[in-house]
Design a protein around this nucleic acid. Structure first.
Length: 168
DNA sequence: CGCACCTGCTTCG
DNA sequence: CGAAGCAGGTGCG
């Protein structure tokens, strides 16, 4: 398990301590309320939730951590502060390199990660992406068609893709 | 379509 | 180290 800070392109910036407290910010996305959780080093979590504590619960459960909610803040443009195994971090960083409306299948994405046969492991790592939208896990789709699964709801994944493809 | 079966790899105990 | 668990893929009807 490592805890690192990366920029918007997924490039490594530095290591960082595991957060003990997080600031939060709720803002309206056209598909729902988006809750962001910030450590002192960057954006740790972003997901579709009605309440900030739901987001915190998710974050704690996924990372087996005990973290407190601190202050409400306004939307901040910060780097990402990600916690995960080497493998997960590699996958998330790779996702950040996808440009807008650049979608791919799970198997193709696995190949671009240099793990062409590890499709299921890659999919598991994608599923644990803690930062919706900024880490564009929604751009990875089943080869057979359809939009596949999404941690915050399949309908939202579908809509995100529609929005991204329409803006061209 | 849906289903059964297969798969390789990561993760956790 | 072994076993569980996968946001997948394939082939068949």
């Amino acid at each position: 398990m490592k805890s690192i800070v990366v920029n918007g392109a997924g490039e490594y910036i530095s290591d960082a301590p595991i957060p003990s407290g997080l600031d939060y910010c709720c803002h309206q996305h056209e598909l729902g309320t988006l809750v962001a959780l910030y450590s002192d080093f960057g954006l740790c979590y972003q997901g579709f939730h009605a309440q900030p504590d739901e987001a915190l619960n998710e974050y704690q459960r996924f990372n087996s951590l005990d973290v407190s909610l601190r202050n409400q803040v306004i939307t901040q443009d910060k780097p990402l502060h990600l916690i995960g195994t080497d493998f997960q971090l590699m996958v998330w960083q790779r996702l950040c390199k996808l440009s807008r409306s650049d979608t791919s299948s799970y198997s193709h994405f696995a190949a671009t990660c240099q793990r062409p046969t590890a499709v299921r492991a890659i999919a598991s790592a994608i599923a644990r992406n803690p930062v919706a939208i900024r880490v564009p896990c929604h751009r990875i789709l089943p080869k057979r068609g359809g939009t596949g699964q999404y941690r915050w709801g399949n309908a939202i994944k579908h809509q995100l893709l529609r929005i991204e493809s329409n803006q061209f």
